[in-house]
């Protein structure tokens, strides 16, 4: 920084024609040929633009025009807003187009994601509770993930936590797949999987000595029953919750 300021000062005091000489002299300390440097500079700009564009696009949302009046039925009751891909919504055109342009590059280098660590708000955790039964209906396995007693070391536990958390992003199908996997793993004929939200306690609740794992803090969002060969659909209780730490 200081070096740059010095050179700026020096150039300001000198003849306008001089920078060319100064530039070539300063470049002599840089080992690569100017053509290489131009080429690599271009690649650097493209790469950094791509790195910037992925989280930028993922952090933008379409918006309704100011003063937009939502549709209503004959009685004046508000109707659902139009789908987000309809023309009413203003799309963030620049980040969308840039991300589309860089899409394959971002994919190839595993850069096509955001960095929303614990954002926009920290949320409760998701858990998967399961029971596996044999052909006679007797329970042959039960458990949950994540589970500190069962999954060690911590990173292994955390992988299971993400598996449960990202159920919200992947939708109902993932719950069925977990149920099938557990059935196959334990050699069962049917399984029941509960997708559970563990709600957070406020500071006052903790001061009032409510334990963080109080039974009342667990809410079943959906229950999935799977039998070998069947494809029963789950009943989803609430909307998917945010994934703490996962980002988009």
């Amino acid at each position: 920084m200081a070096k740059n300021n010095q050179s700026r000062q020096g150039q300001a005091d000198s003849d306008p024609a001089e920078p060319k000489k100064k530039s070539s002299r300063s470049s002599s300390g840089v080992p690569w040929h100017p053509v290489w440097r131009w080429l690599i500079s271009l690649l650097l700009i493209l790469h950094l633009t791509a790195v910037f564009v992925a989280p930028w696009d993922l952090s933008t949302d379409p918006a309704l025009p100011p003063g937009y009046v939502p549709p209503a039925d004959a009685q004046g009751k508000p109707l659902p807003l139009p789908p987000r891909d309809s023309t009413v919504w203003q799309q963030p055109v620049v980040p969308r187009k840039l991300r589309e342009f860089f899409r394959h590059y971002l994919n190839l280098a595993y850069l096509n994601h955001g960095y929303q660590f614990f954002a926009p708000d920290p949320a409760g955790s998701n858990l998967i509770r399961y029971h596996v039964y044999d052909s006679g209906g007797a329970e042959i396995a039960a458990g949950q993930f994540p589970d500190l007693d069962d999954q060690w070391p911590r990173l292994f536990y955390h992988r299971h936590m993400m598996l449960a958390a990202q159920t919200g992003d992947m939708g109902e199908e993932s719950g069925r797949l977990y149920a099938r996997h557990l059935m196959e793993r334990h050699g069962g004929q049917s399984s029941r999987v509960e997708w559970v939200l563990h709600r957070l306690l406020s500071p006052q609740q903790v001061i009032d000595e409510t334990p963080l794992d109080a039974e009342s803090t667990y809410v079943v969002l959906a229950e999935i029953r799977e039998t070998a060969g069947s494809t029963a659909n789950p009943s989803v209780g609430e909307l998917p919750v945010a994934i703490p730490g996962a980002g988009r």
Binding site: P55, W56, S59, G114, Y115, Q116, F117, F118, A119, P120, D121, P122, A123, G124, S125, L127, P146, R154, M161, H198, L200, L201, P203, V206, L212, D213, T217, P244, G245
Partner: peptide, 29 residues
């Protein structure tokens, strides 16, 4: 972008987000 995403969160604006992060039983070590 992590900071910009947090700006959208009501709890980050209200100054309570760190509580909700540490009160998460599954994360807590």
């Amino acid at each position: 972008f992590s900071g910009l995403a947090k700006l959208l969160g009501e709890n980050w604006q209200a100054g309570s987000a760190v509580w909700w992060a540490v009160a998460n039983y599954e994360y807590q070590s």
